[in-house]
């Protein structure tokens, strides 16, 4: 990649040791290498960390900061600016309710409340046993299928509150 070489004299490569021997750090390191350890690749690299570990922890942020030579506070500022990044480990299962306009006028709020009542957690929280995270999305762009939810990565359209709660209850029941 050569795009920003001209604007960023720093093409130093990095020798910052990974936080642990976890093989997933190699994936992160590969992303950094592909981007020439450029500071402007910060968001791409944070995506790589979250993709590998499911969330961003302090060790990861320090590793990325040191490798890309970006100040800690800037890394933290970027990581907390974007809604996609999370600093807390997600639950084993995730229930994302789309809160886009179309879903909203077709009753997404009711979906959130139903799950909230069942799990006792607010959007953005994970059940105490770490089993389920309830999340809200701004809009997943599946407005034709409103109201829509994403359960463990799979989209479900035109869903009813009782069906959604049913699916969430399965997660709570089974040791899957």
């Amino acid at each position: 990649m050569s795009v920003a070489q001209t604007h960023h004299g720093r093409f130093l490569g990095s020798r910052t040791p990974a936080p642990s021997g976890d093989a997933r750090w190699k994936l992160v390191a590969a992303t950094m290498r592909r981007h020439g350890y450029r500071a402007d690749a910060l968001i791409e690299v944070l995506h790589a960390v979250q993709g590998a570990f499911g969330f961003l922890d302090d060790d990861g942020l320090r590793f990325v900061a040191a490798s890309l030579r970006v100040p800690y506070s800037r890394v933290y500022g970027v990581a907390t600016f974007y809604q996609h990044f999370t600093l807390r480990p997600p639950g084993k299962h995730t229930c994302v309710v789309c809160m886009g306009t179309t879903c909203y006028i077709k009753g997404a709020q009711g979906l959130v409340e139903a799950v909230q009542d069942r799990l006792g957690v607010k959007p953005g929280q994970t059940t105490k046993d770490g089993r389920v995270s309830l999340l809200e999305a701004r809009c997943i762009g599946s407005c034709g299928l409103a109201p829509a939810v994403v359960l463990d990565g799979a989209m479900h359209g035109k869903i009813k509150a009782e069906d959604l709660v049913g699916k969430v209850e399965e997660w709570m029941k089974h040791d899957s």
Binding site: M1, V3, R38, A39, D40, A41, L42, I43, E44, L46, H47, V70, R74, G77, V78, F81, Y82, Q83, H84, F85, R138
Partner: peptide, 27 residues
């Protein structure tokens, strides 16, 4: 090159988008 957003509506605004492409807070 592809650059991935990370969930910030304001990045549709062009100066914020550029900040984000540069790896910064999308302000």
């Amino acid at each position: 090159e592809l650059r991935l957003g990370a969930g910030a509506f304001v990045c549709g605004e062009e100066t914020a988008l550029m900040a984000s492409v540069e790896g910064q807070r999308g302000t």
